[in-house]
């Protein structure tokens, strides 16, 4: 007879949350010294649109990645124009991790992001334009192809165009053919552009 030393589970313990879970309590916890408390506060703030400024403020100084991830997740759920503006500020920042996380949140907010997209795509900083194009990768918005076509027709920076062509290989239709061919003529000495444009053209093909 085997000795089954498995014991029956006891009543599962509840977690300890120090501050009350109302708006004021959660906002206070957002600055708690303990990272777990901050993370839970960030997450539990998801129903409160009033918390957006506090969350964004915290995001700028927060160094713990688990807390940052929770803040980004809550912002995604709250998703409105104010949040997009704060995220755009992150795109202009230097820290790669924060920029990448901002892109991921923006991908989930097609309606809130759409009004800002034309402006972002002509931002003076090429890096910001590249990041804006990266948002289009997964953005579920009907204008994605149109924006990408504008980028490859007008942007002078080869890396911005390169990022856009990559996405056109996935979402491109006949509407993109002329501009893809023009792009090849514009950068005849860039092997990557030629490769990527040909791939996109091949993918568009005829179905």
């Amino acid at each position: 007879m085997p000795i089954v030393k498995l014991v029956q589970a006891k009543t599962v313990e509840s977690d300890k949350r120090s501050h009350p879970r109302d708006l004021a309590g959660l906002m206070a916890s957002l600055d708690a010294p303990d990272a777990t408390a901050r993370r839970w506060a960030a997450r539990d703030l998801a129903p409160f649109t009033e918390a957006v400024p506090a969350l964004v403020k915290r995001l700028r100084i927060e160094t713990d990645t688990t807390v940052r991830e929770a803040i980004f997740m809550t912002l995604t759920e709250l998703g409105d124009a104010n949040i997009v503006q704060s995220l755009i500020k992150c795109l202009h920042g230097e820290e790669v991790e924060r920029r990448n996380a901002a892109i991921e949140v923006m991908k989930h907010l097609p309606d809130a992001v759409a009004p800002f997209m034309p402006g972002l795509l002509v931002d003076p900083a090429p890096n910001v334009r590249i990041l804006a194009v990266s948002v289009l990768e997964s953005l579920r918005h009907p204008d994605v192809e149109k924006w990408l076509i504008e980028v490859i027709s007008e942007d002078s920076q080869v890396n911005v165009c390169a990022t856009a062509v990559d996405i056109l290989a996935e979402v491109g239709t006949e509407a993109a053919i002329t501009q893809l061919e023009a792009l090849k003529r514009r950068f005849p000495d860039e092997p990557y552009i030629l490769f990527a444009a040909d791939l996109a053209l091949q993918r568009i093909g005829r179905t």
Binding site: P2, I3, K5, L6, Q8, A9, V12
Partner: peptide
């Protein structure tokens, strides 16, 4: 998991395990 613990984990004799 329960079968594996009882059959193949020698230390099962020394530890209580809650399996939920």
């Amino acid at each position: 998991i329960a079968l594996y613990l009882t059959e193949y984990w020698p230390d099962i004799a020394h530890w209580d395990v809650e399996l939920i």
